[in-house]
Design a protein around this nucleic acid. Sequence first.
DNA 1: TACTACGTTTAGTAATTACTAAACATTCTA
DNA 2: TAGAATGTTTAGTAATTACTAAACGTAGTA
Lengths: 176, 176
Amino acid sequence: MTTKLTQLKQDFTEGLSQISRFWGFPKGMGSIFAVLYLSPTPLSLDEVVQATGLTKGAISTEVRTLARMGLVHRSSKLADRKDYYEAEDDFYKSIRSILKERQNSEFDSAIRSVRETLEKLEAGTVTGNAAELDFIYKRVRALQEFFNAIDGLTKAVIKLESLGMTNVTKILSVLK
Amino acid sequence: MTTKLTQLKQDFTEGLSQISRFWGFPKGMGSIFAVLYLSPTPLSLDEVVQATGLTKGAISTEVRTLARMGLVHRSSKLADRKDYYEAEDDFYKSIRSILKERQNSEFDSAIRSVRETLEKLEAGTVTGNAAELDFIYKRVRALQEFFNAIDGLTKAVIKLESLGMTNVTKILSVLK
DNA sequence: TACTACGTTTAGTAATTACTAAACATTCTA
DNA sequence: TAGAATGTTTAGTAATTACTAAACGTAGTA
């Protein structure tokens, strides 16, 4: 039983859409990436419209966030006003730019709020039952330390020349 | 300038809510966890209702998913029909059970769909332009390899006796 | 057995998010 | 300069998700 190439592409795209949703991104983002990833040549906005069934508007905005994450690249041909988009195919590179992106995001500000909580506790300016205060202080500090560890890890990954199989293998070997 | 303990708790809870949303979970989940995490003693459902402002129903369901992820534990006192909930305070442990949880989830099925794509391509049962087929095969295979690497990593982490600062430090040292 | 104290489920609502359609801005071309 | 070809923004809609309120189930207690 044979499969048509177009069908295969569609299934693949469907799969990436689900993965995208799983990670909390719009499923349209997944399908845009899939289409670009399977294309041997960069595609214009209208070609992506055609291939995904989404509208120009949607693609315009989602391609921008994909580009911010380093998952697609925008290029242009001389003497052609169209923009062209192509997928990054080095996922390890993408991971690094996604992490970099996230550093400046809301996540960091939320984490900062935990640190502020901790600082208030350390400054001794919080009024309330002493035993409870002590308990809460320990817990908040533990959380803070955990965040610091995560933060250290992501920063280390960002700084790498390249993540990639070699490094993954190294990590695996230490974990054994 | 001093802060009331209740205010501090509220701010902390607010912070965790944002973090929860950032990771694609309901913000209510974050606040439930925060309340439990700051409590020296396990809390009953009604106490959580009181502390979070959510309804019994919401808490009932969200506490269940928190428990599945190993972030909270349910316990009961003898001769007391109430359930009591308390937060896991070993986050490394939680990471491991979250990863374990995710293994059987939709994510895996989506990844499986990529593998299926690859298998069809390898079986040579796909009809279409040969050059394009070859290109697509290479790309899909690369993605598959990437997923395998990730999968290997998560499995390794799951298998660990315990993740924790020691291991994080080890990883960091390899990445330098 | 009826009543109470709980947790769960369910059906509906509110809030959020993803997307569309169309107006708009910009740049090139005639 | 007018017109066409492009990408972006915006205002509204559809779809999804988080939550509420209240009915329900169950088990313990009088």
